[in-house]
Every structure is written in structure tokens, then in C-alpha cells.
Design a protein around this nucleic acid. Structure first.
Length: 699
DNA sequence: GAGCACTGC
């Protein structure tokens, strides 16, 4: 770990160059890309394993797991905890008698790549002794697999079939400091399981900041005598390179401009090494990229020897363009990746030596009063700043340019608000109920969500018929809804679809709505793309438009070329096929018959209303929409096919996103009579043929 | 007239 004792130096983007360095600690890091083993040059696997920092702690880790029910491991980047600890446990006998050592990851790719590495180290075929389980891809063997990597969401699913997780002897929750929704749920549930299963061991792998919180949460010792603690802590040093941190002298008025200036300054004054710049959204990424491309052209014309290659990176970018950031460049080219937060944890780009950090991130927020989610540009946390800086020190020592003052850094919160406290909880509450947690308000949350958010969730679940008057899961509706890997409104819509005679179409629509960025819009071909997309549009709205796209995709033999011609997300559509198949299987399980509307749109729309009635809006004389529930102003999202068209009187929508205004996404025109008919417990007929929510004032 | 952080089941 680097000491922070050198003189603090600052620089100002656009004026003087970066000054002397100050080294700082870097926080723990994700298990990144798979390591490639070359038998000709590499050390023997055994030798490599012993050189990892975690190896020195092997016996201590085994002692702690033997002694304590829960062990918190603070493992820094590159210490080897994820790949080694499960192997130590297996070697010590924790996988004997058919027991399994489970290791969770927040992301699918991480689960696969880490499993691959461990299988390779053990000389095992993937899916036998070592395996992984993620949605749509179970590469494990119930008899043979001893070490199993899985996503934390998958672990929560497994609890529905096996509430005490009997097959596991140890569960290690990796990257717990990220505090993703499912990691937090798993943590709460595991604490409950541990009370019934004293033999179950839990290892929480986390960054320094959160270790104490995890320890307090898991320690069941109330005697005040530390020798009776049920939870231990161990810190394992990492293996990363030092990163010098630079702050600005004064606050930066415009970080978009400052990012461009800093890239150019680095290019002029610094040695070789690629640049990674963090911004908050697609717009900013495109803006900075295009400005830099202009500068790069000018510099080439002026005969600058070293070239700049500018690469935008965000999740909505077409797959082929995303892949470009991983391509190697020639030594005469400096790669500049301009990215959203996707580059903070989800992807790792090799060769990055310089990081530029604007101090902001776009985060989901949930307003329990309006029941709307929004995306808000928020200052990052210190943990996040550290994570971003660490991206510069993976291959050799690097530099991080923070576009804010050290004083402002000190004001940042230590950690990001856990997802549990920023999201709509209806899916979580439904799942907890299905797992037998009757009183969800008293569930042992690591960070309890706002009570009002829970009440909102309970009300919605009641309105959907998933809960009864006593808040108990209904049988069969609630039980079945919980089995769908979708939010409760979708589950309700699917389960009702047989009553409307359109289960085939509804399964397709539900699957299509799970994919993001179905319509691809390359920034330089906006008009052509829009023209192609209009070909699928129908007056009823986005749901039937998506159905059209899917059916056309099938008609054209699921061709990737056809997708490209029509600016459609091919990988997304492939995913929709898989999701659809999974949903179809669940429908069969619940004996929902296959029926088709045979071209009648109304039955499909009515079925959508049966799930999404709570998300209804009517046109206001001002020309904008108002929610039926509480008369809030809404607008049709510009990505909707209904945007710019003659606005229908009544609509239902999938979700609301708040940016500059409240926008409805995935919008479909409906009849007001359907709302009263299909949700009589929710709406009643008011004066003047209008509708009113039973939960708010009559309009 | 105008907009889409990132995961996961």
C-alpha cells in the first residue's frame, strides 16, 4: 500500500501541466479479465498460486473459517482472494461429503471468467469439479461440482427451491462492497439461514470502508466478550501499481471542456500510455469524443508524430463499436477511451495509465412519494473515486487527474448509497415474501430501505393480487408471480394472458421489453436509423411495435444482416429469444395455455392493462399527460413511437424516467373503460366520464 | 418540441 506523505500538488486544466505526484491508497478491485496461461513462459500453476499475496494468509483464513461463522475478508486488488480462497477451502475438506463451496459475483461475465481460471488451475474440465451457474447458462454438475461460481441474483433464486441452501458448506460473497441489490438481499437472508444452520460458513469479501459495517451486522455475540465473537476480519494486501493523484487548484466550471483539455495536456506532456476518461452519460461521451477527434485531426495535420485514437464507450453503443476499446494500438498511437461508469467495474481496459475523473455519475434514484424512478447526476463517493483512479494502476504505475479540488474530494461521501435504498422495492418484497419472510418491514436489512418505499411496494403487490388483505402471498397468483424473473407487473400480465387469449403475443412483448437499446441509433446516422425504425411503428404504441420487430426478426430467419440493415440490436434480439424461451417454460409450468390474438390488437392491449393499470395517464388540456394516481405531469419519451404523433387520450406505460422532465417509456394507447373494468379495485368512474384513483382525491 | 448510468433473475 502506498503511503501518502509526499507534497500535494495541483494543476489547472488548460494552463500549467500536471505537477508532482501524490500517492494514495487504492480500493479493492473487481476480478477482471481472464488470465491467459502460456505453458512455455509461465511459472508452473502451483508456483503462480503460491506467489499471490493471499497465499501467506492461507492457514489463517482456514483457521478463521473454522472458528467463526462469518469471516470478513478485506482483499485488495490483485490479492488472489476470489480464485484461491475457494481452493484452500476445498483442499481443507470443506467440499467433502458432497458439499459445495459457492462463490457469488455481481456480474455474469465475472462468474464465468473466474470459474474458467479456477478450473484451469485445477486442471479440471469446466462444469465438473469447478463450475458456474448464471441465468440461461448452468455449467455445473449437481453431483460433481465442488466449487461453484454464481451470480448473487442466482443464489437468491436458489433459495426459493432450497431455503436453507443445504448443499453449501461455505458461501463467499465477492465484491460485497459494491452493495448491489442482490448482494444485499443475499446478505440479509444468509444471516437468517445462519441462525438455523450453525455449520454454514459465510465469507464476505469487501473493501476496507465497509468491513466494520459487515462485521457488526454478522456478529451475533451480544456478550461484549470478544472471545465469543461469531465474526472475524482479515485484511489481505493487494498487488497493484501506485497511482499518483492530481487535483485541480480551483473548481472546474465545465468538466466536459476540462476533460478535453486534460486529454490534450496529457498527450503533449506525458510519456506513452492510454487514457481513460469518466463522464456521466452518452451525450457527454459523444461530445467529448467529437471534440477530441477534431483536435486529433488538427494535430495530425500539424505533423504531430504521436496520434490520438478516440474511442467512446457506453452500454448503448453497438457491440462492434464497444469491442474497439479492447483492440491493441500501435506504439505511435495513444488510445483515449471516453466512457461512462461502465468502465468503473463492468469492463477492464488494459494499457490504461492515465485516468481523468469528472467526479460525477448518473445514478438511479427512487421517489417513494411519486413511485417514480429517476436518473440523477450525482457526485461520486470516495470509494468510487478510488476505484476510478485504480484503473490507471493495473499494468504499471499511473496517474489520475481529478477534475476537482482536494477540498471538494474531502466533501464526497465515503460510499455510494446502496441500491436497496434507491430502487422500487416491489420485486424485492415479492421475492422475500416467497422466501417465507412474512414481516418484510422487520427483515434484517444491512441498510434498511425507506419505510415509505416498502409501503408503496406492498400496496402495488396488493393491487396486483399478489398479496391478500393480511399482506400474505396469495396462492396461486402471488406464488407464481414470484417465480418469474421479471417485475411483478410483467408477471401479472403474463399470468393473465390466457384469459385474454393472447399468451403467445404477450410472452413476446414481455421478452422484448427486457432488452435495452433495441433500436440502434449511431450518432452519425440518426436520420437513416429513424427512417428504418418507423417501418415497424404502429399507432397503438411501443408494445405492439416491439411485437412487430420480433415477428419480422423471426420472418427474416433471425438474420444479423437484416438487423444491421434496419438498425436493430442483434445481440439484444438474440437475448429476447432466450428470455422468451425461459418465460414460455414458466408459463407451461403454470399451465397457461398457448393462445394467439390472431391479429386483434385490442385483446393484447387489454392484457397489458391488466398488469400495468397502475401506470396510467390521461391527456391534459395543456397537451401533456397527467398520472391517474396522483395527477403528476408526464411526457412521452422521445424514443417512443408515439412521440410527435397525435397523442392518444389514455395511455399505460412501463416506467417513468426523470431527466429534465418526467418521461414515460414504452407507452401504449388504451381505453379508459378498460382501466375501470380490469382494475376496479384501483380506479372508479368519476364525474364527467373521467377516472379517479381510489387511493387519491376524486378529480 | 427532444433524450436513454449500470447490473441481475
Amino acid at each position: 500500500m502506498a503511503a501518502s506523505h509526499s507534497a500535494k500538488k495541483f494543476w489547472k486544466p488548460g494552463s500549467e501541466g500536471p505537477g508532482i505526484s501524490e500517492e494514495r491508497d487504492l480500493s479493492s478491485e473487481t476480478t477482471g479479465s481472464p488470465v491467459i496461461y502460456n505453458p512455455n513462459t509461465a511459472l508452473s500453476i502451483e508456483n503462480q498460486r503460491q506467489r499471490l499475496p493471499v497465499f501467506k494468509h492461507r492457514n489463517n483464513i482456514l483457521y478463521l473459517v473454522e472458528t467463526y461463522q462469518t469471516v470478513i475478508i478485506v482483499g485488495e486488488t490483485g490479492c488472489g482472494k476470489t480464485t484461491q480462497i475457494p481452493q484452500y477451502l476445498m483442499e481443507a475438506g470443506w467440499a467433502a461429503e458432497g458439499k459445495v463451496i459457492g462463490v457469488t459475483q455481481p456480474r455474469r461475465v465475472a462468474a464465468i471468467s473466474v470459474a474458467g481460471r479456477v478450473a484451469e488451475e485445477r486442471g479440471a474440465l469446466m462444469g465438473h469439479e469447478v463450475g458456474y451457474t448464471i441465468r440461461f447458462d448452468d455449467c455445473s454438475d449437481p453431483q460433481a461440482t465442488r466449487i461453484k461460481f454464481l451470480t448473487d441474483g442466482m443464489l437468491v433464486r436458489e433459495m426459493m427451491a432450497d431455503p436453507l441452501l443445504k448443499k453449501y458448506s461455505v458461501l463467499m460473497l465477492d465484491e460485497a462492497h459494491e452493495r448491489t441489490l442482490y448482494t444485499d438481499i443475499a446478505i440479509g437472508l444468509l444471516k437468517k439461514i445462519q441462525k438455523k444452520r450453525r455449520d454454514l460458513r459465510v465469507i464476505v469479501a469487501s473493501a476496507t470502508l465497509d468491513a466494520k459495517k459487515f462485521h457488526e451486522f454478522f456478529n451475533l455475540n451480544e456478550s461484549g466478550d470478544p472471545s465469543k465473537d461469531t465474526c472475524g476480519i482479515l485484511t489481505v494486501e493487494g498487488r497493484t501499481f501506485p497511482v499518483d493523484i492530481f487535483y485541480t487548484i480551483s473548481p472546474v466550471p465545465d468538466y466536459v471542456k476540462a476533460t478535453v483539455e486534460t486529454v490534450l495536456k496529457i498527450h503533449e506532456t506525458e510519456d506513452d500510455g492510454d487514457v481513460l476518461a469518466f463522464l456521466t452519460g452518452q451525450d457527454e461521451v459523444e461530445k467529448v469524443s467529437s471534440l477530441l477527434v477534431e483536435h486529433a485531426r488538427t494535430m495530425s495535420r500539424q505533423g504531430m508524430k504521436k496520434h490520438l485514437r478516440i474511442l467512446p464507450m457506453y452500454s448503448g453503443l453497438p457491440y462492434a463499436d464497444q469491442m474497439k476499446v479492447f483492440e491493441r494500438t500501435s506504439p505511435s498511437v495513444r488510445k483515449v477511451v471516453v466512457a461512462t461508469n461502465i468502465a468503473e467495474t463492468s469492463i477492464t481496459i488494459n494499457g490504461v495509465v492515465f485516468v481523468i475523473d469528472c467526479a460525477f455519475v448518473k445514478l438511479r434514484a427512487y421517489n417513494p412519494r411519486s413511485a417514480f424512478e429517476s436518473l440523477v447526476v450525482t457526485p461520486i463517493s470516495k470509494a468510487s473515486a478510488s476505484q476510478r483512479a485504480g484503473r490507471a494502476g493495473r499494468n504499471r504505475s499511473g496517474k489520475c487527474f481529478r477534475l476537482y479540488t482536494e477540498e471538494d474530494y474531502e466533501k464526497l461521501p465515503d460510499a455510494t448509497v446502496p441500491e436497496m435504498q434507491r430502487t422500487n422495492l416491489a420485486p424485492v418484497i415479492l421475492q422475500l415474501k416467497a422466501l417465507g419472510i412474512d414481516n418484510v418491514l422487520r427483515f434484517n436489512f444491512l441498510s434498511p430501505p425507506p419505510a415509505q418505499t416498502m409501503v408503496q411496494a406492498l400496496e402495488l403487490l396488493y393491487a396486483l393480487g399478489g398479496l391478500d388483505n393480511y399482506g400474505r402471498l396469495t396462492d396461486p397468483m402471488g406464488l407464481r408471480m414470484a417465480e418469474f424473473p421479471l417485475s411483478p407487473m410483467f408477471a401479472k400480465m403474463l399470468l393473465e394472458s390466457a384469459n385474454f387469449g393472447c399468451s403467445q403475443e404477450i410472452v413476446t412483448i414481455a421478452a422484448m421489453m427486457q432488452i435495452q437499446n433495441l433500436f440502434v441509433v449511431p450518432p452519425n446516422q440518426k436520420k437513416v436509423a429513424a427512417r428504418e425504425h418507423r417501418k415497424f411503428a404502429v399507432a397503438e404504441g411501443d408494445h405492439l411495435t416491439m411485437l412487430n420487430v420480433y415477428e419480422a426478426f423471426i420472418k427474416h430467419q433471425k438474420s444479423s444482416q437484416w438487423c444491421q440493415q434496419h438498425f436493430l440490436n442483434y445481440k439484444g434480439l438474440q437475448r429476447a429469444l432466450t428470455v422468451r424461451e425461459q418465460l414460455r417454460r414458466l408459463m407451461n409450468k403454470f399451465k397457461v395455455p398457448k393462445t394467439s390474438s390472431e391479429g386483434d390488437p385490442d385483446v393484447i392491449l387489454r392484457c397489458i392493462v391488466s398488469g400495468f393499470f397502475a401506470n396510467a395517464a390521461r391527456i391534459h388540456h395543456s397537451g401533456t399527460y397527467r398520472t391517474l394516481r396522483d395527477d403528476r405531469e408526464l411526457h412521452i419519451h422521445p424514443t417512443s413511437v408515439l412521440f410527435g404523433e397525435k397523442p392518444p387520450k389514455w395511455v399505460v406505460f412501463n416506467e417513468v424516467v426523470q431527466t429534465t422532465k418526467y418521461y414515460m417509456r414504452d407507452v401504449t394507447a388504451v381505453e379508459s373503460s378498460w382501466l375501470v373494468e380490469l382494475a376496479p379495485h384501483f380506479y372508479k368512474q368519476a364525474k364527467h366520464g373521467s377516472l379517479a384513483s381510489k387511493r387519491s382525491r376524486v378529480l
